[in-house]
Measured scan of single mutants.
Amino acid sequence: MTEYKLVVVGAGGVGKSALTIQLIQNHFVDEYDPTIEDSYRKQVVIDGETCLLDILDTAGQEEYSAMRDQYMRTGEGFLCVFAINNTKSFEDIHHYREQIKRVKDSEDVPMVLVGNKCDLPSRTVDTKQAQDLARSYGIPFIETSAKTRQGVDDAFYTLVREIRKHKEKMSKDGKKKKKKSKTKCVIM
Rank of each mutant, 00 (worst) to 15 (best):
V29E: 05
N86Y: 01
P110L: 04
G60V: 07
K128N: 09
K169M: 12
F90C: 11
G15L: 06
I55P: 00
T124F: 09
M170L: 10
M72Y: 15
L79D: 03
F78S: 02
S122M: 13
F82Q: 02
N86K: 11
Q70M: 01
G60E: 03
A134T: 07
K177I: 12
R164W: 05
I21M: 09
D173T: 09
V125T: 10
D154P: 08
A83C: 11
T50R: 02
N86I: 03
A134R: 09
I84P: 14
K169I: 11
D132F: 10
D105R: 04
G174C: 05
Y40I: 01
Q99R: 06
K184G: 14
A59P: 05
T50M: 03
D30N: 10
E98D: 10
Q61R: 01
E98Q: 03
R41S: 04
F82P: 03
T58H: 03
K5N: 15
K176V: 10
Q43W: 02
N116R: 03
Q43T: 02
Y137E: 05
K42L: 06
F82N: 07
S122I: 08
D153Y: 04
L19D: 14
D47S: 05
T74E: 07
E98I: 00
R41Y: 03
P140L: 06
A155M: 06
G15F: 15
T20K: 02
T74I: 15
Q129S: 11
T20F: 04
V9T: 04
R135Y: 15
L52E: 02
S122N: 13
T158F: 13
R135F: 12
E3Y: 07
M72V: 15
K184V: 03
K117Q: 15
T58E: 00
G75K: 03
A130T: 09
D92G: 08
I46Q: 15
E49S: 12
Q61P: 06
V7F: 15
V112I: 11
E49F: 06
L56C: 01
S65E: 11
D126Y: 09
Y96D: 02
D173A: 06
F90I: 06
R149S: 09
I46P: 02
Y157M: 07
G151W: 04
E62A: 04
L79F: 06
N26P: 00
E76R: 03
D30A: 07
L19N: 11
G77T: 07
D108Y: 08
V45F: 01
I36T: 00
K177P: 15
M111F: 12
G12R: 01
F156I: 13
G151D: 09
D105C: 04
V44I: 08
L53V: 10
L6K: 03
Y137P: 15
L120M: 10
E76F: 09
A11I: 07
D132T: 07
I142G: 06
G138V: 05
S171E: 13
I100W: 03
D57C: 00
Y96F: 10
Y32Q: 00
I46C: 02
A18V: 11
V81C: 12
D33Y: 15
Y40G: 02
V8S: 05
T124P: 09
G15E: 08
G151C: 05
L53K: 03
C185G: 14
Y32S: 01
E37G: 00
G75Y: 05
I139V: 09
K184S: 14
Y137A: 07
D33I: 08
R164E: 04
L133H: 14
G10L: 05
K101W: 07
G77C: 14
D54V: 01
I84A: 14
F78V: 06
C80T: 03
V81F: 15
K88L: 12
K167H: 13
F156H: 15
T124N: 10
P121K: 11
M170C: 09
S181V: 13
S65M: 13
Q25F: 09
G10K: 03
T124C: 11
F28G: 00
G13D: 12
L6R: 01
E31V: 03
V9I: 13
T124S: 12
L120C: 13
P121M: 12
T2C: 07
F78Q: 01
D126L: 09
E3W: 04
V125K: 10
L6N: 14
G77V: 12
I46T: 04
V44K: 01
D108L: 06
I55H: 00
Y137F: 06
D57L: 00
I24C: 11
R97E: 07
K176R: 06
A11Y: 07
E63I: 08
K178W: 04
L120S: 12
I21P: 00
A59Q: 14
Y137D: 13
V114S: 02
S181A: 10
L23N: 15
D119Y: 09
E62V: 05
G151V: 09
Y64N: 15
A83H: 10
K88V: 11
G15R: 03
N26A: 11
V29R: 08
T50L: 03
G77H: 03
E107Y: 14
V45H: 05
K5G: 13
Q61C: 15
E31N: 04
V112Y: 05
L159M: 10
T183F: 04
I24E: 11
E31I: 03
S122W: 10
N116G: 11
I46G: 05
D154N: 09
I142F: 10
E37D: 06
C51W: 09
R149V: 07
E37A: 00
I36E: 00
E3H: 05
D108P: 01
G77M: 13
D54Q: 01
K117T: 15
A155L: 05
H166S: 12
P110V: 03
C80H: 10
K178A: 09
G10I: 04
L133E: 13
E168R: 11
L6F: 11
R41A: 04
Y157K: 08
S39K: 00
V7R: 02
T2E: 10
A66G: 09
T124L: 09
V103Y: 01
K169L: 12
Y157T: 11
V81R: 01
I142L: 09
D154S: 10
S181P: 14
L53D: 01
P34G: 00
F141C: 10
F78T: 01
A66Q: 10
G48D: 09
D57G: 00
R123M: 13
E37N: 00
F82D: 02
C80G: 04
Q61I: 14
A11M: 10
L113D: 12
T2F: 05
L6E: 02
D33N: 06
V160C: 07
D105Q: 05
V103F: 04
G75I: 14
T2R: 08
Y64T: 15
L113S: 03
S145P: 05
V14D: 14
S65T: 12
P34N: 00
Q131Y: 05
L56H: 01
E98L: 03
V45R: 10
Q61L: 14
M67Y: 03
Q61H: 13
L53M: 09
K42H: 04
H166Q: 12
G13I: 11
E31R: 03
P34V: 06
A66R: 03
G60D: 08
A59R: 00
A130I: 12
G151Y: 13
T183A: 11
V14R: 11
V114E: 03
T58N: 01
V152R: 05
K88G: 10
V9C: 05
V44G: 06
V81A: 10
E3G: 04
T183I: 05
E37Y: 03
Y71V: 15
C185W: 04
L133D: 10
R41E: 02
D33H: 14
I55Y: 00
C51H: 04
K167A: 10
T183R: 06
L6W: 02
G60L: 05
A146L: 01
K165A: 10
V81M: 12
V109Y: 10
R73T: 10
C51R: 03
D105V: 04
L6I: 13
E62C: 13
R41G: 04
D119M: 02
E63P: 04
T35M: 00
V125D: 09
E162Q: 11
Q25G: 07
Y32E: 00
E63W: 01
V29W: 06
K16D: 01
D108I: 10
F90V: 08
S122T: 13
Q22V: 01
E143D: 09
A66E: 04
G115P: 04
I36W: 00
D108S: 07
T58W: 14
T124K: 11
M188E: 15
M72G: 08
K88S: 09
R102C: 13
A134D: 02
N85D: 13
P121E: 14
T74S: 13
D47C: 03
L133N: 14
I36P: 00
